[in-house]
Design a protein around this nucleic acid. Structure first.
Lengths: 204, 204, 204, 204
DNA sequence: AATGAATGAGATTTCATTCAT
DNA sequence: GATGAATGAAATCTCATTCAT
């Protein structure tokens, strides 16, 4: 039906551009009105396209939401990597994680608001929570690793790395909510305070 | 025209019993299938009553959800009070808060799951988050007070009480999520670890 | 089951008082919010009683509406009778009808608003218009009779008495609507103008 | 980007065809069962479509009803215009109005039945009557103008043009009701009688 | 006589999804 | 690739009516 050389790539290009556009608009809508009020119609309207396009490019609403989550998680990871990689030691990595995370919150708060809403709501048809739709546990796993390393190096005291990792993660997630209540929140200072908090909590 | 003893209470009694039953079923349904999948039909089905009964006893879905939130917050406060009141000093109060909170999670995990879902989703028609539907900020305010007191007494070091209070609260809220992933989670140990974490984080 | 002397009358008395109260409140509600927005709940609320009472005293909503219509028609007839009976000739009867009717509108506009709404809406379950729920055609019959008499007496010219009667009736019914648009409407002047209109329309 | 001739019209064509079909079915249903018994479900059923289609093409029930009213008023105006424009003098216009109106009643009695029901029932959420949803008062204004002109020309005697216009309008509206009671009614004769009635009522 | 409680039908509306073009 | 049109399910809410007390 069509010559077999380039067209495939070309199709993929347009395809990917549309998907990216749709995902991006979905982020905006979810962040603005919340997951529960987000409909395909609203996303299509914001993108200036018809509802059918979304169904054409995504298997269904679920896949779209999944893609949104992966998109945000991917962005956050990429944003945070340099913060973490530059770290000389275990606590430096924790510090990098916190500063990178809050940096990302500041730069793309919409994305984190949307992700938070998705994680709080994503369930399958039966109502069971989606298993690890984003790298949520991935982040906890990463933190856990840093903490274990710090304990092995003698930089950290003894504590449950799981509880500590979960609490760091939770403290970071709570910042989005604070931002809604107080949009003027000083994120740099908040990061400094959190670093300080977990420095005292972990140091040997 | 009527003797003044029981009748009034009795009349209210049936009404209150039904409301309590409906609220209770709503908690179960929300905890099980999530806020987004919770419909009046499902709640009525679980209660073994017709949909109309809910409309009869509550002005609408919004009032019901509000009642559910208040019910859980009320229960949690009552459960935690003795833990906190017994405390001899500021950190004792923090410890009491953590232990009481996780004690309540263990005893009524459904209620906290439901409350979490409601708080993550409650928005008005415009999509703006509901202002403090439960005593969410109330809890943070309470923690903040304990922390200031500890600083004044010299028991705690200097830190941002707001960030610390928010982080304690977030760490506690994260436990419900952990419980879903691992229903065998040892909450007593978890509480001990959290107390330890925030002891190191706050102590002078 | 019950002694057969007085109780019947006594029951009928209370019974009638309640029915009258309910009918009266129904008039108010219909006049205020319109037939379509009138529910038994609203009527009960205005009467300060429970919905069940209405079902107890009336076979159903249809009977209540029927009673309301008959009540208003009865009042209007009683109000208009002296105007008409005092008339010396056929046109005097027409004049009496017009003046009496508008007098009643002025004295009890609520009742006529309610009646108008009922007549415009009253249908049986199939949607067919209720056959002559009020004395609507009765009024037209009365006017028709006056007109024929006037023609026989030579006071009126030749015309279709049916069309003339219907038009008089319609012109009178339209006044309620005018009153809503302009509550300050001078009904006495309006009556004079209508009498004048139909005087010229009918006179030999 | 696109040639400027047909496409826009064509796209609108299907849309408009559906809207016209739905409006037309709504007219039939309202005329048949009355405004109060008219539901979107019944209209959809008559159109042989699903309920959702109506919601797709109209913002809501209110917009649909509004469109129905405008449709009938537009048709009636178009039907009556030639009758009125051909008139040589003021009473000729009145005659044209009456004959045109009854001509339309005869040709499309359903439409006028539906319009009458809508006007009698259209209220906003508070129950207040909708302000002039159709050109109801427009018709009265037109008649009023004709009457003033006739008075200025000396063709008509002195009378309240407002009362006369309202009464003409009311006499015409009453014909729909007569038609229900007697479907064999001779509208041509009725028009002749009404013209005669208002000729005597107005002539100098 | 009266009440509050409950019911179940029905109304409007929203929405994800499918399909012909 | 994209669109508008259509569907049908489901959700919330209202209401007349019934019933036990």
């Amino acid at each position: 039906m069509r010559p077999d050389s380039k067209p495939v790539d070309q199709k993929t290009f347009i395809e990917e551009a549309r998907r990216a556009q749709i995902v991006s608009c979905a982020v905006e809508v979810i962040a603005e009105v919340g997951y529960g009020q987000t409909s395909l119609a609203r996303i299509a309207q914001r993108a200036g396209i018809s509802k059918g396009v979304i169904s054409y490019h995504f298997a269904g609403k679920d896949e779209l939401i999944q893609q949104v989550a992966e998109y945000v998680v991917g962005n956050a990871r990429a944003y945070m990597r340099p913060y973490i990689e530059a770290a000389p030691d275990a606590f430096g990595q924790i510090r990098g994680f916190i500063e990178g995370n809050l940096g990302f919150v500041g730069a793309h708060r919409e994305q984190l608001l949307a992700l938070g809403d998705i994680l709080a709501n994503a369930r399958d048809a039966n109502g069971s929570l989606m298993p690890d739709i984003s790298g949520a546990s991935g982040a906890i796993g990463t933190l856990d690793e840093f903490l274990r390393r710090g304990q092995k190096d003698g930089q950290f005291r003894a504590f449950s790395t799981r509880v500590m990792a979960t609490s760091i993660r939770a403290a970071l997630d709570a910042v989005s909510g604070q931002l809604i209540a107080d949009p003027e929140l000083d994120l740099r200072a908040y990061a400094r305070d959190l670093v300080d908090l977990f420095h005292h909590a972990t140091k040997a």
